[in-house]
Write a protein that binds this DNA or RNA. Structure first.
Lengths: 210, 210
DNA sequence: GAAGGAATCGGACCGCCGGTCCGTTTGGTC
DNA sequence: GACCAAACGGACCGGCGGTCCGATTCCTTC
């Protein structure tokens, strides 16, 4: 991302070649038995180049994840409601969960590979941190107890293997509905500072994909 | 488990030796960089013996998990309330979540190793299936929508890495409270067939560990 | 446009791991 | 005590993530 200065032309070319090759292998071979040898071969570069660019397996998938989640993260922070600032906590959380389910369903393989490569350090990746901060903040606004832990629990539903189970055909609906239901139950239970957080008043901002 | 018949004495001795060795390595080296070579060496047996007994890495950890979860699974099915049959859905679910959090916090390393070894097939392990059936059934009794998916979402909070994060000192309280809170919110929201499922009426059956 | 040097490349190489194989040993039985 | 099925164990295999360093390529400078 933040290169020191002036990336050499061949380096840039190879970087995108590796990323594209990784994507291709991810969608073709569904799972995460993707060796970096294969990636390098598919990209038409040497193995050393892959490691020079991305450090290690984790870094490679992290870069791809960041690329895929960039627009969502921007929309969350500075986009228009209900995803961005301005909407009430519950609709905003629901919109986020919809968007996240959609993203997760569309890129299961990538997310699976990323999780597997990260291991326990998954929770310290910038992307996860941003999502957790967002959810946690929204929950805290409605005074949900231990918002941080609750946010983790909600986000745990987006475990890649679970996504595969609940969205076998790529449709995020089932996962989205389930998690939104959880969030709504949680928030409805806690009398909010904002008055009109009632269940009936929820604007359902499903990103209609189907 | 169900050996064909009459396990030879040395085989039995080696089996427990391997299991104990695995436990020891799990608690000593916190994570899952436990090679089966090491396990064999620690147990004082050959590598081939480990594979002969347990088939593969997954089988080894699965055997250990089954050993650890046996009593809980019995208690759920035939034990006394509130864990066993006889209690109302919500208290029973809360009791189960308490017990599961306790178990998870005490055996994080094992569960982490098991998850990692199982991969996506984690959801088809007998233990997970039993737990999911249980939670799913309880949710359905209170007419929670899509009980199956919701049960998966609740159980996802027991992801080993998340347990490590929320129970750094082995105390299950924070995890338990969070998930029980989720379950309670869910069930309270749905008007049950049983009348007295209210929040105040919940008997808190925390397995006081602290 | 040629030269120089730094950044990049690439694939041979390393140690390790999960899993297999088969000659050897052991335990139960008659 | 002898026999044989069962179990043992460690050498062996293919493949992986990651490293290293001589060869190559790009960019700058004159």
């Amino acid at each position: 991302m933040t290169e020191s200065r002036t990336e050499r032309s061949d380096a840039a070319r190879n970087r995108v070649a590796v990323l594209r090759a990784t994507e291709k292998l991810l969608v073709e071979h569904g799972a995460e038995h993707i060796s970096l040898d294969r990636v390098a071969a598919q990209a038409g570069v040497g193995k050393g180049t892959v490691f020079r660019r991305f450090g290690n397996r984790t870094g490679l998938f992290a870069a791809l994840v960041e690329e895929r989640t960039e627009t969502l993260n921007q929309d969350i922070e500075t986009g228009p409601p209900p995803l961005g600032p301005g909407a009430a906590p519950l609709p905003r959380l629901r919109a986020f969960l919809d968007a996240l389910a959609d993203l997760a369903a569309r890129h299961v393989s990538l997310f699976a590979a990323h999780e597997q490569a990260c291991g326990p350090g998954r929770f310290t990746s910038p992307t996860y941190l941003a999502w957790h901060r967002h959810v946690s903040g929204l929950l805290a606004m409605v005074r949900v107890g231990d918002a941080e832990a609750t946010a983790h629990a909600l986000l745990a539903a987006f475990d890649a293997d679970l996504v595969r189970l609940l969205c076998p055909d790529g449709r995020p609906d089932r996962l989205a509905e389930t998690v939104k239901n959880l969030a709504t139950a949680l928030m409805s239970e806690h009398p909010s500072t904002v008055e009109q957080v009632t269940r009936s008043g929820v604007a359902d901002s499903s990103s209609g994909r189907a």
